[in-house]
């Protein structure tokens, strides 16, 4: 019996979200009195795999080979399912990112398991097994009980603190036969946007709205995001106008985000927008309209012209970074 954590890698590397996931898995495993195992698919060097031990993984199962060189939901599900059965996984964990969202539901069907996606905290109870997630686009939370023998969770990035728990780790290579039947939906091309921080895992997000008036004015927003190491986002009218891509639209009908810090610049704060960002830990509103609803939701606010404030803010961040 074990807790099995699917540790996704990005070109052979893990990220902070990976450490969060292992740390979370370790905390559950301690409660259940079982070990944490990691499972990774694709080419990852051993020294990188060894890193997983730092957060409490006892063993990492490493599936590699030509057939798993590209992400295909059906084949990855098969691989994870085989390992989960082999190690008697009680709980299987994923990141609640684009990959996790594909794999966790498929695996749930495979293993006839209950699954809860986007979990934001440790289980509030283990018998019965109850976890918390956000619902109604961030307007509320729900405590969900999972009754099946095997439980599948996907963890919302930025919702659990990384904690180190170093133990010696062993690596076990797994050779799996993947039927061609499972390799039908194949990526033919991947377009990476370099230097852009994915919104779903960004710790800081700088988001701007119609108050910026035109797409040409985004330079200062990009600069602020860049020096903060933040993801870039926008409100719906901005993506509808075509000033920014749809991938940056956050809100109820765009992406739901949950960074530690959310800057809303020139965004009035319509209910649909707030619904998508409400689970941010701290929100800052910058708006020239003191009546903007965003000030009701924000923790910190500045009333004034964004075109004057943002450059000053950039300077202030630079000074802060220099002093650190």
């Amino acid at each position: 019996m074990s807790v099995l954590v699917y540790t996704e890698n990005w070109d052979g590397k893990f990220k902070k979200a990976t450490w969060e996931l292992i740390s979370y898995g370790k905390a559950i495993a301690e409660q259940l009195g079982v070990p944490v195992f990691a499972l990774t698919i694709g080419d990852v060097a051993d020294d990188q795999l060894n890193e997983l031990g730092k957060y409490g993984a006892e063993k990492v199962y490493h599936v590699k080979g030509e057939k798993v060189s590209k992400f295909v939901a059906a084949s990855y599900t098969h691989a994870i399912s085989e390992v989960a059965k082999q190690v008697g996984a009680k709980v299987v964990m994923f990141d609640h990112n684009f990959t996790g969202r594909s794999l966790a539901p498929r695996l749930a069907v495979r293993l006839d398991a209950g699954t809860v996606s986007g979990v934001v905290a440790l289980p509030s109870s283990y018998e019965p097994f109850v976890v918390k997630r956000s619902v109604y686009s961030g307007k509320a939370f729900v405590e969900m009980q999972i009754d099946s023998e095997v439980k599948i969770l996907s963890l919302m990035p930025n919702s659990y603190k990384v904690s180190e728990n170093p133990i010696p780790i062993s690596i076990e290579a797994i050779d799996l036969d993947i039927a061609d039947e499972l390799l039908k939906a194949v990526p033919v091309r991947v377009e990476k946007i370099e230097g852009k921080i994915p919104l779903t895992e960004a710790e800081i997000i700088v988001s701007a709205g119609r108050g910026m008036k035109a797409s040409d004015n985004w330079g200062m927003i990009e600069e602020l995001a860049s020096i903060l190491g933040a993801g870039l986002a926008c409100s719906r009218p901005v993506s509808d106008e075509g000033w920014r891509g749809h991938d940056e639209h956050v809100g109820q009908t765009g992406k739901l985000v949950h960074p530690n810090l959310y800057f809303a610049i020139g965004i009035s704060g319509a209910i649909q927008h707030l619904a998508g960002v409400n689970s941010s830990k701290v929100m800052v509103a910058i708006n020239n309209d003191v009546e903007a609803p965003f000030f009701e939701a924000a923790h910190y606010g500045i009333v004034g012209d964004a075109f004057e404030i943002v450059p000053k803010l950039i300077e202030a961040v630079k000074e802060f970074k220099a002093a650190q």
């Binding site: 684009f98 990526p187 033919v188 377009e191 990476k192 994915p198």
Partner: peptide, 11 residues
Amino acid sequence: EIDGGKEVIET
């Protein structure tokens, strides 16, 4: 859409 980009898939 994938984290940090997009992927073109044929199925």
